[in-house]
Structures are given as structure tokens and as C-alpha cells.
Nucleic acid binder design. Sequence first.
DNA 1: TTATCGATGGTA
DNA 2: ACCATCGATAAA
Length: 189
Amino acid sequence: MKLPQSFYSQDTLKVAQNLLGKFLARKIGGKTIVGQITETEAYCGPNDLASHASRGPLRSREARRGKTPRTELMFGQPGFWYIYLIYGMYYCLNVVTEKNEYPAAVLIRGVKPIAGLKPEVKTDGPGKLCRAFKIDKTLNGSPASGPKAEMWIEDRGVKINPSQIKKAPRVGVDYAGAYKSRPWRFFIQ
DNA sequence: TTATCGATGGTA
DNA sequence: ACCATCGATAAA
């Protein structure tokens, strides 16, 4: 079943772990691409210095909160896709979590190819996964649940034992001070 | 095997 | 100037 919006309105660390083993599905051009989620990262609220929603002193009060044109989706309703361009050439896929006005999201870093992909296509990194699923900013802000979602996440009944979930610091956030070593990256196998 | 580095463009 | 990345290349 397609995960409902209520799934995403929980604590971000919980959502990030509960997404492991679920299935990312994208309908495009009459076919559906599917991958099983193997790796996620949690970005938790306005105080998380690794998050786009936390930025240094900026001019406007809104910007000081981290709310900018790019990041405002993170401050919105849970269960919507937040997609941004990184390093000028790759996209990263996140799903917004928790409450409206509370900036938090889960970055989907890797999936295992299940359907609609050639076997040689790599999906084991946030940029590679977006390339394989043809994800770009046209999906930014679109819903991850509901009947009109073009991309969503399904529960197919796979249970992940909590002891199988590995934790590690998040990738590429050395600038994040005390938050750089938080074990908010989750993966299986 | 690990380490380093360039590509590339939006963001602030 | 800085990056929530990747792939090529070099060193070991």
C-alpha cells in the first residue's frame, strides 16, 4: 500500500528508519520504476546545523530561520517531495516530515533496483538514484501520497529488524559543528 | 585498496 | 565561495 501522509508526520528519526525496506515508485511514460530503500538520512528541525533549514546570520528574519525560496518546502506540510540541485549536476530527493512550519525531511540516499531499470543502472547514491529515476525539479513540491502522486513510497509488507539497521554520521556535513557527528544516517546491508 | 580532484551551476 | 555528489585517475 502507498504510505499515507500520516506516515510522514511522525518524528523524523523514526520516519528515516521506517523508510528502510519500503519501495520508492515513480510512474513515468506509462511505466513504473521501483526501488527498495536501503539508505536514508534525517535532517531534524531548525537547530540541525547540517540542514538547509538552519543557516547562519542572514539579513531577513525568515532567512535567519533558514526559510528561503529553496528551502521553504521543508517548512511545509509533511509528505511532499523536496528536491534540490547539488554540485551543479546532481539532484537529491527528500521527503518532508513532521508538522507544518517545522522544517524537517528525510534524504533518500540509496535504493536497490526492483523494477523498470536495466540491471547495470546504479542507484546506490542520492545523485545516482535521481538520475536512474529521472528525478529533477519538476517533481519538487509534488505530493508523495494521494491518488495523483507521480512518485510515492509503498509498504509491501517487508519487515526490517531494528538490529539490521546500521547508523552512522551523515555524509558531507563537516561544516555542521556538533551536529556533524550525529548518527542520523541509516542503512541496511 | 584509499586518496585526490575536476565538473558544474544554484544558492545566499 | 560554498556545496546533503560522482567518476576518473593516481598512488600504494
